[in-house]
Computed example of a mutant assay.
Amino acid sequence: MSRAETLRDRYRRRLPNRLDELDGPAHGTVDLPLHIVWSGRTNYTLDRPKSCMTLYRTVLAEGMREDLAAYLNRRLLLEQWPVLRRLISPHLRDVWEGAFPELVRSASTAGAAA
């Protein structure tokens, strides 16, 4: 299996069944555990767009299925996706957009509005 296929498979196994399972906080401060962010910053403020975007990038790339549900919020993910999709790896983006067409629609709608 190629490196790209291995990465896609790893990300696919972590996916929630539905975006509705992403029931994390939408406001306030979040402290990520060391198994997600093992060095550097661990504290993020969801009400600050740049901080929120960094948290989502980190959790998408490093979090397990339970972490995705605990730290990501469906509404925030959909709102951020048009920009976030350009900041994550193409393998991660392809897996999430392949599983959740609403993310693709979110990105398309934002592009049409710009």
Rank of each mutant, 00 (worst) to 15 (best):
V30C: 02
R57G: 10
R75I: 03
L72E: 05
L60Q: 01
S2Q: 03
D20P: 03
M1L: 11
Y56N: 01
G40N: 08
R75P: 00
A113Y: 06
P101M: 06
L19A: 03
A69P: 05
A4P: 05
R86A: 13
S106Y: 04
R105G: 00
A4F: 04
E5N: 13
R93V: 10
H35N: 13
H91F: 04
G63N: 09
P49R: 15
P82F: 09
N17H: 13
L103C: 10
R3C: 00
L87M: 11
A114Q: 12
R10Q: 08
G98H: 04
V95S: 07
E66I: 06
L84C: 07
T109I: 07
Y71S: 04
A114V: 10
A114T: 09
L92H: 06
C52K: 14
P82I: 08
L32H: 02
L34W: 10
W96M: 12
I88R: 12
R74G: 00
D23K: 14
A69R: 15
Y71N: 06
D67F: 11
P90A: 03
T58W: 03
P49Y: 09
R12D: 06
L15K: 08
R8Q: 14
W96K: 04
V59L: 06
R12E: 10
W96D: 00
S89G: 14
Q80M: 14
R8K: 15
L72S: 09
L76W: 02
V95L: 09
S2I: 02
S2G: 13
A107I: 06
E66V: 10
N43G: 04
E21A: 11
R10G: 00
A99R: 15
G111K: 14
P90Y: 07
L32M: 05
R85T: 04
S51R: 07
L7F: 12
